[in-house]
Write a protein that binds this DNA or RNA. Structure first.
Length: 936
RNA sequence: GGGCGUGUAGCUCAGUUGGUUAGAGCGCGUCCCUGAUAAGGACGAGGUCCCUGGUUCGAGUCCAGGCCCGCCCA
């Protein structure tokens, strides 16, 4: 007789092969049709809220793995908060204005861009942004991210544009907005000022020249040896074209300078650089006359080498002895340090270069020439009149435009700023930073340092695609009109027609019958510049969190990459502190960058870029989500084929564990078949205790945003606690017992409960798989109501599971004994003494302490070792047993188990053969089979 | 060049106030099983704790300097 049919073998239709790439779209479709997100929000309406405010990605191009990582992280947080009992709405957003989009639209327009109207260009930009929003939205949804995708926030929505104007006007009315000439990064190709965040550094070959600046005054009073000599300061620069704007030569107040005789001239340069410089000049015939401190040079005058102008000798701390001559060419209109020095000495930020990089009349003979081509002319002229000491080319790191990748320049222009000093914005912001919970904690240091040292916030951009700086200035005297009614009029028209209104109507439309407070004039001119896009996204707390009914401000959490300490976290902070006197967030969490398997950043040129679409196509979004959870995001996040393969392996283990658990409760009705806790075995209670422990740890990890702990705990639980221990041991009870056997039902009660909890614990991460398994667990059909979805449940409650420390300790000891025994079993297996562990009888030599411990546990130990027999024996020694490695007073021997192998349960037992009807079965199995046959 | 951060097995992560022989899981290798089967079980081999100094009876852990990588800035 074949006894296989009398066993309760596992059975399920839940597939071992996940087929994620095909199944995921199906679940997504269903969730969308069921309006899962919306229904979930409704169901949590009266619960406390947890507001995670989305930082808007830029609406240009496909999403990359970094954005995918960020969105999945947010999704995991929001889903886990929901499972923990919070209402956690998610309003995704997009950053829509700005240079990159305008630049791409310009490219698409080609020659037409010169003819198209501003409004026409803006319309094209809007369309362009819409296109990419649509694309990105689909890509984000594909990741399984739940949110209000039908009503995201867009910084180009009319209401949002009005909010931007409103917040700008608040700054304006509070006198925080100032206009001043200041050198800013300027791209002459894009013809716009660039924010610091908009320049990137690449290697660039520049001219490196040394130039004589003849000292006009006799320096005899400072250094006696120089009396009556022709003295020159030797400066070094890599930007010859800024020489027409030179206003000063800077010396370090602490450096020692040398006066070097070269022919009939005396050159001044830093003493420690003399040798190096003259080597470079190729001059060996020189003599150091004397050395001196430069402090005496302050406020003396040099002559400009080729313009009829003086150049002041000044002192500055940033002068370096690393390179150059220690005498620094200073052009306050073309450099940040230079500008500050200029302020100190009352020098003009001269900048004789227009927006296209063309010299103006102020540059004398170079008028009409183009930067940087003019370098060559200037160098030649210097050479011709003997001012040039040396000319080389050097390659160095130089700022480039983030968009067009061309070198940029520093150029002084009229710009609008939010002053960091007015209304104590800087101090208030620093204070606000201290009241925010930064994760990781060093985030506070980082942003604090940045805010502490940052310059005024340059708000203006000379472009078309953005929200205008809504300033009206008096035509006569230039005074800025600050009038609440006018502001309101602007805001209202933006609500109706968007920021386009500014370009549709003239100044009078907004100014009404306003009068200039300074000169009484009634004519006004509109500002043409638009706002920095960081201002757009920076006011999202106002445009979104304060406006949308389901949200709130300040938000509980902002969550972005660590680059946003300078970006969105900061612009949001300043926008909020400047208008609300508080931070827009209670907590800020940052994650590292996605890098390749070696920790190097991804770049197209290196060819190590991994696209989210590749991961989805090859493994499925679920694997991408699991990968997100597996990495500790506080550091950089690595990704590679190897890593994804391992994540995929982990997924298979998790899935198989779930499948096996499902397959063993296929005949279990938890309404009618459940067994109470006191009817369970110690092993069952141990498993429940481990589950309660898992629950506690995982929920805490979710609340602490430590998802890699969730991943590791769960993986260990699946692979070790369940798969290799509990479920493996349970097989005999589940398979060989009668269907309704109390012990079997107890095991099923435990399995079902743990399985349900496992699914709930992992649903925030494994959203697809837990949904699928949940449907099998509850026997749900495809058309089941949305409320039966796993997402409407909660994290498991394990309060009723008793956790006794001594009990855990006893089990720890039992498992230790088990591992000692399996080692010896393995030796026996290698010696071909046994195959299956059930072939073995384990004989232990135990000391008194162990004997006492084991007195009531012999059978449990046999069970968890999955051997046919286990007993103690006196007199074991080295000839017939081995001493346990990690347990004192224990000897272990493995022998062939006595008796015959039962054909049904495979346990070797002396009772096999005793039953006449079933001579191939052990007593237990014979009984079971008889009762089954009788029932039939 | 400056600021912030990071560095523990092939991979992902633990490692308490300094304290035995640095851990786990996976992967890898070998074996067993064929009643979880494109599964399951067992055992085993893997580490200069980035480097160099220092403090200490004792350092993965504390201190100093350096290197690598990342972000931000110049």
């Amino acid at each position: 007789m074949d006894y296989r049919d009398t066993l309760n073998l596992p059975s399920t239709k839940f597939k071992m092969k996940a087929n994620l790439t095909q199944k995921e779209p199906m679940f997504l479709k269903r969730w969308e049709k069921q309006e899962l997100y919306k229904k979930l929000q409704e169901s949590m309406a009266d619960k406390p809220s947890y507001i995670l405010h989305d930082g808007p990605p830029y609406a240009n191009g496909h999403i990359h793995l970094g954005t995918a990582f960020n969105k999945v992280l947010k999704d995991i947080i929001l889903k886990s908060r929901r499972f923990a009992g919070f209402r956690s709405p998610y309003i995704p957003g997009w950053d829509c204005h700005g240079l990159p989009i305008e630049h791409n639209v310009d490219k698409e327009l080609g020659e037409k861009k010169e003819k198209i109207s501003k409004l026409g260009k803006r319309g094209a930009c809007r369309k362009y942004a819409e296109k990419w929003i649509k694309t990105q939205k689909a890509e984000f949804k594909r990741l399984g991210v739940l949110g209000d995708w039908d009503q995201p926030y867009l910084t180009m929505n009319y209401g949002y544009e009005a909010a931007i104007a409103r917040e700008f006007n608040r700054f304006l009315l509070s006198d925080s907005v100032v206009r001043s000439k200041k050198p800013v990064y300027w791209c002459s190709t894009c013809q716009t000022a660039l924010a610091e965040a908009e320049v990137e550094y690449h290697d660039h070959t520049s001219a490196s020249i040394y130039v004589k600046f003849p000292v006009k005054e006799d320096l005899g009073d400072v250094v006696a040896e120089l009396s009556g000599r022709k003295v020159c300061a030797i400066i070094w620069t890599t930007t010859p074209w800024t020489l027409p704007a030179n206003q000063a030569v800077a010396f370090h107040p602490q450096f020692v300078y040398a006066a070097v005789e070269v022919g009939d001239e005396v050159w001044i340069l830093a003493e420690e650089l003399v040798e190096k410089c003259f080597q470079e000049f190729g001059i060996s015939d020189y003599k150091v006359l004397t050395t001196f401190k430069a402090t005496g040079l302050e406020n003396k005058k040099c002559s400009h080498p080729f313009l009829e102008r003086d150049s002041l000798m000044v002192l500055a701390n940033y002068v370096t002895a690393e390179s150059g001559t220690g005498c620094v060419h200073t052009a306050p209109g073309h450099g940040a340090d230079d500008y500050i020095t200029g302020l100190r000495y009352g020098l003009e930020p001269l900048s004789p270069v227009d927006g296209k990089g063309m010299f103006t009349a102020d540059a004398g003979k170079y008028e009409g020439r183009q930067v940087p081509k003019v370098n060559k002319d200037i160098i030649e002229d210097l050479r011709a009149d003997g001012s040039l000491v040396q000319h080389n080319d050097i390659s160095h790191s130089y700022p480039h435009c983030w968009r067009c990748k061309k070198p940029v320049m520093y150029r002084a222009t009229e710009q609008w700023f939010v002053s960091m000093a007015k209304n104590e914005l800087r101090d208030k912001a620093l204070k606000a930073i201290e009241n925010v919970k930064w994760t990781p904690s060093w985030g506070m240091q980082r942003i604090f340092g940045m805010v502490e040292g940052r310059p005024d916030w340059c708000l203006s951009r000379q472009r078309s695609w953005g929200v205008p700086i809504t300033v009206l200035s008096c035509t006569d005297c230039g005074e800025v009109l600050k009038n609440e009614e006018v502001c309101k009029r602007i805001e209202d028209s933006f609500v109706k027609e968007g920021a386009d209104a500014w370009f549709k109507y003239d100044a009078a439309h907004f100014a009404g019958d306003s009068v200039c407070s300074s000169c009484g004039c009634k004519e006004f001119v509109q500002e043409a510049d638009i706002l920095d896009v960081w201002f757009d996204s920076g006011v999202s707390f106002s445009a979104v969190c304060e406006e949308r009914e389901e949200l709130d401000s300040p938000a509980d959490l902002y969550l972005e990459g660590s680059d946003q300490h300078r970006g969105w976290f900061q612009s949001s902070l300043l926008a909020s502190v400047g208008t609300r006197e508080r931070a827009p967030y209670k907590g800020v969490l940052t994650h590292g960058y996605v890098v390749d398997g070696k920790g190097k950043k991804m770049s197209k040129s290196v060819g190590n870029v991994v696209a989210p679409q590749e991961v989805i196509d090859k493994y499925g979004a679920e694997i991408l989500r699991l990968w997100v959870s597996s990495e500790d995001y506080r550091d950089d996040v690595k990704v590679s084929d190897e890593i994804l393969k391992h994540v995929s392996d982990a997924y298979r283990k998790m899935r198989n564990t779930i499948r096996f658990m499902l397959s063993n409760i296929s005949d279990f009705n938890h309404e009618t078949d459940s067994v109470s806790m006191d009817e369970m075995t110690g092993l069952d209670r141990w498993a429940l205790a481990r589950f309660a422990e898992l629950n506690e740890r995982v929920v805490k990890a979710y609340m602490d945003h430590e998802f890699h702990t969730v991943f590791h705990s769960f993986y260990y639980f699946c692979g070790t606690t369940m798969s290799s221990i509990y479920l493996d041991v349970l097989k005999d009870r589940l398979y060989a017992s009668e269907t309704n056997d109390a012990g079997r039902r107890a095991a099923q009660t435990v399995i079902r409960r743990i399985l349900e909890g496992m699914l709930q614990l992992m649903a925030p991460i494994l959203s697809f798989t837990t949904t699928e398994a949940w449907e099998y667990l509850h026997g749900l059909k495809e058309d089941a109501p949305v409320e039966s979805s796993i997402f409407f449940s909660a994290f498991p409650n394990t309060d009723d599971i008793s956790r006794v420390a001594e009990e855990d300790e006893r089990w720890g000891q039992l498992l230790l004994l088990r591992s000692e025994i399996t080692k010896v079993l393995e030796t026996a297996r290698r010696n071909k003494e046994i195959g299956l562990s059930l072939d073995a009888e384990v004989v232990l030599g135990v000391d008194d302490k162990l004997a006492d411990f084991l007195s009531d546990k012999w059978d449990v130990l046999r069970e968890i070792c999955i051997v046919s027999a286990l007993r103690s024996e006196d007199g074991l020694d080295d000839s017939n047993s081995v001493s346990a490695e990690n347990v004192e007073g224990l000897r272990i021997a493995v022998r062939q188990a006595p008796g015959t192998k039962c054909e049904r349960c495979w346990i070797l037992s002396p009772s096999v053969g005793e039953d006449e009807d079933h001579p191939a079965l052990c007593a237990r199995c014979a009984g079971v089979v008889k009762r089954i046959t009788a029932a039939v």
